[in-house]
Design a protein around this nucleic acid. Structure first.
Length: 778
DNA sequence: ACTCCTTGGGTTTTT
DNA sequence: CCCAAGGAGT
């Protein structure tokens, strides 16, 4: 019997097939295991795979689940609908798009596209771009959509309007309205639209609603604590007929409120479904006892949570290491060296991750690992597809598939250069706005004597361009993605353009293009999926290997969606957010400093701090065996230097689980290995005699910064010298290599270090630790 | 029309 | 610091 591998609660949760079910699954408690067994169990009970839908947050989680189910029950699992909210609903929307006025080839806009569109709109409405910032606009639009407020509904909601007024963006509702109109005109949806429109579809079309309500007899939702209102509502509607809904989540791991996730969805599940059965998976199979104990201590500091006791049978394990280092560079250096040692000790197992709060922290670690020849992979939110040359290719593909895609049109109409410059584009855009038409449709019908003052030469260039695109468009339905994509890349001139250039950078780009093409090829070569509903014989969907399907797929891909062989035997670098759901033997949580983690931006409210704490909880519960926390006393951030105190989260762990090593007070040179002295001579010499600024990340290559340094040093004559600690007194004039001239306003002794508060005038008030600051004095 | 350079602005997390 | 947008020069 397949349920043998489960513990009592897991088994109960699996065997309870019908009715509303909530599974509270602590970190490492076998959540995925329970979910996959549950689906396997349903199949074994004779439930058709076509009547099961399982929703996850990442493609990776979906893929893993699907594979594990196939392992359990074999080929029968085929036809199961397992995927992310966005991927499954965007597929359903493709089939039903016409009802909502889109075509099935609608484009999915990413944040970049959305932001460009917003800038355009803000300009056209003559609004102040500094007040109506694109990022802010997008966040607000996203917020409105996630709460299911259409532009019309938004404009009649007094609370929103009052808030916009108070925030000095009273016309935001207009931006939102035009944004939505333009998206629609472009036959495009942003990420939130996929969920929003799914809601509209279910609300307005009873046949569609009933079809899916009846079809999905069993609905399973992973990471339920991270659903927003829009997602919550889709699930609620879909489950309304059979009411077999099983949600799995952990309120302690809710970390996405910034994108609208609402923790009350999980906290209030029992209110929505009063007869719901709740199961708590509390035994942790992943981590050592020390790690679990520490994690429990940390999360106990939060007020809002579902009571539960996470425990483990695992051995106590090593203590958690907390190591303090002098600077971000030395932090990265130390982590690199430690990983190198670990590697030498256990050659075959290679399960190590470096987790950080912000993407920008990856740089120093990347440098450090590269220097030591340790293979690594960075999961960055700006991934392969975000590279310029790839974005250009994708824009071609998008325009071919969906001629109305203005963002794509603008991006490539003159790449490679074909004589369609800014003036022409401005005129074309004015015309398009006048007629409320997509750019392409205007461009293809324009004549030499047009009323828009577009020159005959430009008209001819535009016509040629449109004809070329159209010729490809005609092949979308018939050709496979690879054949068509290859032709587009060859005939558009992109390849020739890159091949002509001789710089190494262009060669790299050309290589990326080839890689992209081979990605298309493997997409085409994977088996075609045709899904037939075994109950009704109805064809549910056919995923042909055409370009439109390819595009839809890649627009929902993220940096974590890489092939397994690409990530095996590599150190994995990612943000803590991306690490959710993953586990590693060795986990380094770096940058454990107040202001960085928790982030300054979270200090405002208790809720925000609690979310940061949950994030920390997620971070430490990724570790199976070894957990290492590090912090740096000083760190370069946004061009200036930060002095960080130990994060409050570290202090929330009792000493009995911690092994604290303060490596920041030692003579710095002693921490640098022989190998590095060889490789990094100038780094050392800089450190010896230069002030702080030369420790910057790029000190070896960044010419600009050394120039800056010189500029600031100019005017310092020989009478200026490095100040001794005792020379620093209130009122003394000092010079700092980065901040310039200043006056000491206060001197204090803290953590055994003498610190000076210095007023640098325009550069602001700074608190400097004297032993690092290398202040000069006359 | 294109390229290079300067300037200015942002700076948490992402499907 | 890093990027993107705008300006100046070719």
């Amino acid at each position: 019997m397949i349920l043998d591998g489960l513990n009592t609660v897991q088994r109960q949760a699996v065997e309870q097939t019908d009715g509303p079910i909530m599974i509270i699954a602590g970190a490492g408690s076998g959540k995925t295991r329970t979910l996959t067994y549950k689906i396997a169990y349903l199949l074994q009970q004779g439930v058709s795979p076509f009547s099961i839908i399982a929703l996850t947050f990442t493609n990776k989680a979906a893929k893993e689940m699907q594979e594990r189910i196939i392992d359990l029950v074999g080929i029968e699992a085929k036809g199961l609908l397992v995927g992310t909210f966005h991927s499954i609903f965007s597929r359903i929307l493709r089939m039903e798009a016409e009802r909502l006025g889109y075509t099935k080839n609608y484009t999915i806009y990413d944040d970049d596209d959305s932001k460009k569109l917003i800038v355009d709109i803000v300009k056209s409405l003559n609004l102040d771009e500094k007040q109506y910032k694109k990022g802010r606009m997008l966040t607000r639009i996203s917020y409105a959509k996630s709460a299911l407020y259409s532009p019309e509904a938004y404009a009649t909601e007094g609370l929103f309007l009052a808030d916009d007024n108070a925030s000095k963006i009273p016309l935001f509702y207009k931006v939102y309205a035009v944004y939505q109109k333009r998206l629609f005109q472009n036959n495009a949806m942003d990420f939130d639209d996929i969920l929003f429109n799914m809601n509209v579809l279910l609300r307005d079309y009873s046949d569609v609603r009933e079809k899916y309500q009846r079809r999905f007899k069993y609905i399973l939702v992973d990471e339920y604590q991270d659903t927003n209102y829009s997602q919550y509502h889709i699930i609620k509607v879909l489950a309304d007929f059979h009411k077999n809904i099983c949600v799995v989540g952990d309120d302690a791991q809710s970390i996405y409120s910034f994108r609208g996730a609402n923790i009350s969805n999980i906290l209030n599940f029992n209110k929505d479904y009063p007869n719901a059965k709740t199961f708590k998976l509390e035994q942790n199979y992943r981590s050592t006892e020390n790690i679990i104990n520490a994690a429990n201590e940390v999360i106990a500091k939060n007020e809002k949570q579902i009571p539960k006791t996470i425990w483990t049978d695992n051995p106590e394990g090593e203590k958690i290491t907390y190591r303090i280092l002098p600077s971000d560079r030395e932090e990265a250096d130390w982590v690199g060296k430690k990983i190198q040692q670990d590697l030498q000790e256990s050659k075959d197992s290679f399960s190590t991750a470096i987790l950080y709060r912000t993407n920008s922290q990856s740089r120093t670690f990347e440098d450090s690992l590269r220097l030591k020849n340790i293979p690594y992979i960075i999961y960055n939110s700006t991934s392969f597809y975000a590279r310029k040359e790839i974005k250009n290719i994708i824009a071609y593909l998008r325009l071919v598939v969906n001629n109305s895609d203005d963002e794509a049109f603008e991006r490539i109409v003159n790449y490679p250069a074909r004589g369609i410059g800014a003036t022409t584009m401005d005129r074309l855009k004015i015309a398009a706005q006048q007629y409320n038409l997509p750019l392409f449709h205007l461009a293809e019908s324009i004549t030499p004597n047009n009323p828009f003052q577009i020159t005959p030469r430009a008209v001819s260039a535009l016509t040629d361009f449109c004809l070329m695109i159209k010729s490809f468009t005609g092949r979308v339905e018939t050709d496979d993605a690879y054949t068509l994509g290859k032709d587009i890349i060859n005939r558009s001139g992109i390849k020739t353009d890159l091949a002509l250039l001789k710089e190494q950078e262009d060669k790299d780009r050309l290589e990326n293009v080839e890689e992209f093409l081979s990605g298309m090829q493997s997409f085409v070569e994977t088996e075609e999926e045709s899904i037939i509903d075994s109950l009704t014989g109805e064809e549910i969907s056919i995923e042909n290997k055409t370009l439109d399907v390819f595009l839809q797929q890649i627009s929902l891909m993220t940096s974590t969606d890489v092939e397994e062989d690409e990530e095996s035997n590599k150190v994995k670098l990612m943000t803590i957010h991306s690490a959710k759901g993953l586990e590693f033997d060795n986990v380094y949580v770096v940058g454990m400093e107040e202001n960085l983690f928790p982030s300054t931006l979270s200090f405002a409210t208790r809720e925000d701090i609690e979310e940061e704490r949950r994030l920390f909880y997620v971070a430490i519960t990724r570790a199976r065996k070894n957990l290492i926390l590090t912090s740096a006393n000083m760190r370069f951030r946004n061009g200036s230097v930060d002095f960080g105190e130990t994060s409050r989260f570290v202090r929330e762990i009792s000493q009995k689980y911690l092994n604290i090593v303060d490596d920041s007070k030692k003579e710095k040179l002693s921490t640098i290995s022989f190998q590095q002295k060889e490789n990094n001579k100038s780094f050392i010499s800089l450190k010896k005699k230069e002030p702080l600024t030369s420790l910057r990340h790029n000190s070896l290559t960044d010419k600009k910064s050394s120039l800056n340094l010189k500029k600031k040093e100019e005017g310092l004559d020989d009478s200026w010298h490095l100040a001794k600690d005792e020379e620093i007194e209130v009122g003394v004039k000092v010079h700092h290599s980065k901040f310039g001239y200043g006056t000491v306003t206060e001197v204090e002794l803290k953590d055994k270090d003498k610190r000076a508060h210095v007023d640098f005038g325009e550069m602001g008030q700074r608190v400097l630790i004297l032993k690092f600051a290398k202040l000069k004095i006359q």
